[in-house]
């Protein structure tokens, strides 16, 4: 048995969800190697080799690996995977885009979004937006899984002394081209890795009012999220959406403001350690999952909270 973890990075640093995938891979009982791919993967492979538990860090760079194009990366993953019993990736847009493509090349049925490793071939994963949890056993020779980052602790970024090994890049498939991205720049922590998340819903009533939540998040060193209703109303950009079809978060503290708590939203935050809800409607479903509920006007409560914290 040997496990390989695809490391997602931004060209400089490892994305935290990849470190959770390392932890999940180690739970299979197999020794773990890391695979770093990119336009200039060398910049990150040294950090990958230092991650606790990583025995070997493989590295492949090519200009056509820019933008993590699945058409160009999947053949390399499929080729390397033949030396492994497990191939894991974070269940981020990177992993969810790439891993199923690699799995099809290997004729393997992949397992998405695992939240627990029961044994080397059995995994637990949420279905129906987290309204049920399936325990799934794979008979494939190689197990390919994407890993829900919030379900596993991140492996330590130091303590490892893995060897670095360069791999030959696979050729450009010539099917696709990366044409740029608009990634929001923020001083705040990344939503899925933040210790505190302050999320707003339709009750905020405007994009301007979300600034109040940003202020609260900054005071707590947290990130700002939103319900689908707030995103659809253009109060905040799409990538802030928390829920079944958005991001799944599980911070130490989740503060839901002016947010009713639709089942699809709750699916994305119910594993938070402490949940606070502020809503003027005492019957809002969010109170059914909140540890501390405050019924009242958010426009009074949030400024007061900012002042008192």
């Amino acid at each position: 048995m040997r496990a390989l973890v695809m490391i997602e990075h931004d060209g400089k640093a490892i994305i935290p969800a990849s470190l959770s995938a390392v932890t999940a891979a180690a739970r299979t009982g197999a020794p773990v190697d890391a695979l770093v791919m990119g336009e200039a993967a060398e910049a990150v492979v040294a950090s990958a080799a230092q991650v606790a538990g990583v025995e070997k860090a493989l590295c492949a760079s090519a200009p056509h690996f820019a933008g993590n194009l699945a058409e160009n990366l999947a053949p390399l993953v499929a080729q390397v995977a033949k030396n492994y019993t497990h191939v894991f990736a974070p269940a981020t847009t990177f992993g969810r885009n790439l891993l199923p493509r690699a799995a099809a090349l290997l004729d393997v049925a992949p397992i998405s979004d695992i939240i627990a490793v029961e044994s080397a071939d059995t995994f637990r994963r949420p279905i129906y937006a987290g309204n049920a949890i399936a325990t799934v056993q794979s008979a494939d020779a190689i197990k390919l899984c994407t890993v829900r980052g919030t379900a596993f602790e991140a492996a330590a970024t130091t303590g490892g002394a893995g060897a670095v090994e360069k791999l030959e890049a696979t050729p450009d498939a010539g099917l696709s081209k990366y044409a740029g991205s608009e990634i929001a720049k923020s001083e705040r922590p990344e939503l899925t890795a933040a210790r505190v998340v302050v999320a707003g819903g339709r009750g905020l009533a405007s994009a301007d009012n979300f600034k109040m939540l940003e202020k609260l998040a900054d005071k707590l060193g947290g990130a700002v999220g939103a319900s689908r209703a707030a995103v659809d109303a253009n109060y905040v950009p799409n990538h802030c959406q928390i829920g079944q079809t958005g991001k799944v978060v599980a911070p130490a503290l989740y503060i839901a403001v002016g947010l009713s708590g639709a089942i699809q939203h709750v699916a994305g935050m119910k594993d938070s350690k402490v949940i606070v809800a502020i809503n003027k409607d005492p019957d809002a479903p969010i109170f059914q999952v909140a540890d501390y509920g405050l019924v009242g006007d958010l426009f009074q409560a949030v400024p007061e909270l900012i002042e008192k914290i």
Binding site: V108, T135, V136, Q137, K270, A290, D291, L294, E304
Partner: peptide, 29 residues
């Protein structure tokens, strides 16, 4: 290709308490 061994209900969260004001909330947190 995959065998579903079982399907469980997810662990449920219990509703906590309502706090009367912001000061109590901050104190509790």
């Amino acid at each position: 290709r995959l065998k579903v061994l079982k399907v469980d209900e997810p662990p449920t969260r219990k509703a906590g308490i309502k706090v009367p004001d912001v000061a109590t909330l901050v104190e509790k947190l």
